[in-house]
């Protein structure tokens, strides 16, 4: 991560044509290689905000810079090579006749040779475990597979910034594990990942920093476990604490000395292992 922000949003306002003011003055910085979550109530302005990152929406007031390009005077076609957005509902994103064509379409306009396109298609299908469905219609895939294809069709363009809108909806454990893996791999390879989500448990596992929005404004921005244990902020944004944060708090109320930053399963297992070992020693009459 470098100290020069890759996305700079300054006092951004967005007014929809019907008069709705979705963003009322949002300022934030996102750095290269970061994994950042954007959370908040339904209607807080999260989706509007991410649509400005690739120029789908242009600011009504204020500015958005992506890698020093002011999006207000940059072509969306240029920005969309830098910023890939994976939308919530894959059905709205997929349209080609076959899985292969879906990827091929995405690779158009990148000035690649036919050979390079073919190679990229094969590589992408392999990474996303879709090779066996190469000639199948995207609409005959299961929900999890459609999601994988939607992600693949964005990732094959190799964008530097990837934005996921609610990636875990309708996903079972293996789908969620796959998405976590993709996110981590991308961040490790220096790409920036922005995730709009309501999924608290997913967030606490993979997203170190969250930006909380309410009513078109940013109301909190900081380390995930700190924000997700702050009751007042959570209430304001219609979120709840993750299970293990709640559990830690309740244990503290019981008088147990729980370290402050327990929020992962392995941390809680470690803490409770000690707890149960102590209890068992006490029962046997030994020293705790």
């Amino acid at each position: 991560m470098t100290s020069i922000p890759q996305i700079v949003v300054n006092d951004l306002q967005y007014h929809y044509p019907d008069g709705t003011i979705a963003l009322k003055g949002v300022s934030l910085n996102i750095y290269r290689g970061e994994i950042v979550g954007i959370m908040g109530k339904n209607g807080a302005g999260k989706s509007t905000l991410i649509k400005t990152f690739n120029g789908l929406l242009k600011p009504t007031f204020g500015t958005v810079y992506v890698e020093n390009n002011n999006i207000s005077d940059t072509f969306t076609s240029y920005l969309s090579k830098k910023v890939g957005i994976v939308f919530q509902n894959p059905e709205l994103q997929l349209f080609a006749n076959t899985v292969e064509d879906e990827i091929k379409f995405s690779l158009k306009n990148l000035n690649l040779s036919k050979e390079a396109i073919d190679e990229k298609i094969s590589e992408t299908l392999k990474i996303f475990d879709l090779e066996k469905y190469r000639n199948r219609s995207p609409f005959n895939l299961s929900g999890g597979e459609k999601k994988r294809l939607a992600i693949a069709s964005i990732m094959c363009r190799d964008p530097e910034i990837i934005v996921f809108d609610e990636p875990t909806i309708g996903q079972d454990a293996s789908g969620i594990t796959f998405i976590k893996q993709i996110i981590k791999e991308n961040a490790t390879s220096g790409k920036t990942v922005v995730i709009v989500t309501h999924d608290i448990e997913f967030t606490i596992d993979v997203i170190p920093r969250i930006i909380l929005m309410a009513d078109g404004l940013v109301v909190a921005d900081g380390p995930t476990h700190k924000i997700l244990s702050h009751d007042t902020i959570l209430e304001m944004t219609s979120l709840t604490s993750p299970q293990l944060v709640k559990f830690s708090k309740s244990l503290t109320e019981l008088g147990e000395k729980v370290p402050e930053d327990i929020f992962l399963v392995k941390q809680m297992v470690q803490y409770l292992s000690e707890f149960f070992k102590n209890e068992s020693r006490k029962r046997k009459g030994g020293k705790p």
């Binding site: 293996s174 293990l244 409770l272 292992s273």
Partner: peptide, 21 residues
Amino acid sequence: IGLNIPKCVSVFQTLKNDKLY
């Protein structure tokens, strides 16, 4: 069977496997 197991369940299941609970 690949369900999203709640974390409290996972924690106690691990403790069970470790014969601590």
